[in-house]
C-alpha cells in the first residue's frame, strides 16, 4: 500500500503512526517533489514556460524550476537538440544527482521532428545521448500534454526502489514509457 492511500490519522494517538516500507516512503516523497531543470532549447521552451505560468501552474504538482542541475530531479528536454548542443545535454545530465529522470518533450527531442529528414545539424532524438523515461509527442506539445507526460513519469517514480536493486544503469538507455505509441524498450523490472 502506498503512503498516499493510507487513511488520514485521527485524534487517537495510535492512529497517528503510519507504517510503511522505506522505499515506498521515499518514492512518495520523490514523486511529489519533482524539481525540474529549467532547460529549454527551442519552441517547446515557450510551452514549458506557459506550463509554469498562472493557468497551468505545474507548481501545484510539486514541480519547481531549478536553475542548476545539482538540485534537479528531472530534466525536461524541451526543444531541438543539435549536434553542437548534445554534449552539453549529456554534461548537464551527468551533473544531476541520482535518481534522475528525463522527459523528452516534443518531436524534435523525440526524433528530430520536422528537422530529422533534411537537416544536417540536428540530432535525431535526444535518446542518443541520455536515457529518456517519457516521450511526449507534439510540435510543440500543449502544456496539458506535458502535464500528462509528467503524470506518466510519476508512476515510474513510484515504482523506483531506492533501497532495493538498482534498476537503472546510468549508461545504458533502458526501457521507456511511451503513452501514445509502441513500447520501444524492455519493460520495467518489478521490485
Amino acid at each position: 500500500m502506498a503512503v498516499a492511500d493510507l487513511p488520514k490519522p485521527g485524534n487517537d494517538p495510535h492512529e497517528q503512526i503510519v507504517l510503511t516500507a522505506v522505499d515506498e516512503f521515499l518514492a512518495w516523497g520523490k514523486e511529489n517533489s519533482l524539481f525540474y531543470l529549467l532547460f529549454a532549447t527551442a519552441c517547446c521552451g515557450i510551452e514549458l514556460m506557459q506550463a509554469g505560468g498562472p493557468r497551468y501552474d505545474v507548481d501545484r504538482l510539486g514541480m519547481i524550476p531549478r536553475a542548476t542541475p545539482r538540485q534537479a530531479d528531472l530534466m525536461i528536454v524541451a526543444g531541438t537538440i543539435t549536434h553542437k548542443m548534445a554534449g552539453v545535454v549529456r554534461t548537464l545530465w551527468e551533473q544531476m544527482t541520482e535518481p534522475r529522470w528525463v522527459v523528452s518533450m516534443g518531436s524534435c527531442a523525440n526524433s528530430g521532428g520536422p528537422f530529422s529528414k533534411w537537416s544536417y545539424s540536428v540530432l535525431n532524438g535526444v535518446d542518443k545521448y541520455v536515457p529518456v523515461d517519457v516521450y511526449i509527442p507534439g510540435c510543440p506539445p500543449r502544456p496539458e500534454a506535458l502535464i500528462d507526460g509528467v503524470m506518466a513519469l510519476r508512476e515510474r517514480v513510484r515504482r523506483y526502489r531506492t533501497m532495493g536493486v538498482r534498476d537503472r544503469d546510468p549508461h545504458v538507455v533502458q526501457g521507456a514509457d511511451c503513452r501514445f505509441g509502441s513500447h520501444p524498450g524492455k519493460p520495467e523490472p518489478q521490485a
Partner: peptide, 15 residues
C-alpha cells in the same frame, strides 16, 4: 555539392 556528414562525434547521421 555538400553531402550529409557521415557522423559527428561518433553519432551517425541518418542520411
Amino acid at each position: 555539392d555538400y553531402l550529409y556528414p557521415a557522423q559527428y562525434h561518433g553519432v551517425p547521421h541518418l542520411r
